[in-house]
Design a protein around this nucleic acid. Structure first.
Lengths: 156, 156
DNA sequence: ACACAGTGGTTTCAAATTAAAACCGTCATG
DNA sequence: CATGACGGTTTTAATTTGAAACCACTGTGT
């Protein structure tokens, strides 16, 4: 778990979240949690991963405050795993991942699951990044600005 | 590399992209590519990872069409690694990751890099998912619809 | 009371992956 | 023609993964 992602002392704004999530399995667990799964067994059946691995991933997600356990739900003497606020914050990331998948991993005519509006069943729009003035901006329209200097153009 | 992500025969719309990316390192490579890095040595210095690992990750990203090599750039007899269209499609995902990081991994007063509009240096807006009618929708407002049935509510 | 099954894990151990370091080949430079 | 930079590959040890076995607790039937 002590994966040294960067040679810098503190990880950057992208590496730090990645480190918290842990690995792909964890992200799939989070996705299942968004789909309403809550129990150890449900995750295991849905993802088909070994129990020790699931156990370790859940523990890691708990440790990073992405999931939390709630004592019960219905009679069962077991606990359930539910998303925290922080965990729910991963929703846009999962949508981005799904939309990228739709764009490049399915044939135009290939059927795939669709993320739809619960209200009316229509597919959601594409995620779009907008500037303050409302323009849709792509990667080439943006740059990262280093924290300490507010007038310097520090794009690497 | 033959990571069996799911027990299902074909992976779902989230797992398939994850499998293509490979791992966290690969995503950091892609991020560096967005920042303009192109050379093996640049990636290695920026990320501080072992050369064999970098080599394997680059090979995987090439194999999945996320990066491509271009023969030269300036004199050097070497090749450079640049994002393909597919690779550039990862931009929203990286932004989502970065914004999640900003929300939950930095103290309110802690300095961190900012993604800004190149035009005017102002920070970009938050990513927002919108429904067809323009409403901003969260996870609880959406559901996944299975491909074959257009009237069934098949949320897992 | 007692076998038995379901759930939620932990432990054990072999196999795969990762990572550090050493090595190699090409090209440029002095 | 020695030296060093660049871009890797090979070698080797350490870590991680994952399948399977095991364990503990609860409920259920008889």
């Amino acid at each position: 778990m002590a994966k040294r992602v960067s040679h810098r002392d503190s990880m950057c704004g992208v590496a730090r979240p990645l480190d918290a999530i842990g690995d792909w399995w964890s992200l799939l667990i989070v996705r299942d949690a968004f789909d309403g799964l809550r129990r150890f067994g449900e995750f295991q059946k849905s993802l088909g991963l070994a129990k020790n691995i699931l156990s370790a991933r859940l523990r890691n997600l708990l440790a990073h405050g992405i999931l939390e356990t709630v004592p019960a739900a219905d009679g069962s003497p077991y606990q359930e795993y539910v998303l925290t606020e922080k965990g729910r914050g991963l929703f846009p990331l999962l949508v981005a991942l799904r939309q990228w998948g739709e764009d490049f991993f399915f044939e135009p005519d290939e059927a795939h699951v669709l993320l739809v509006d619960r209200k009316n069943g229509l597919p959601v729009r594409r995620l779009e990044l907008r500037a303050q003035d409302g323009r849709v901006v792509g990667a080439e329209d943006t740059m990262v600005r280093l924290p300490q200097s507010s007038h310097e153009n520090g794009s690497a």
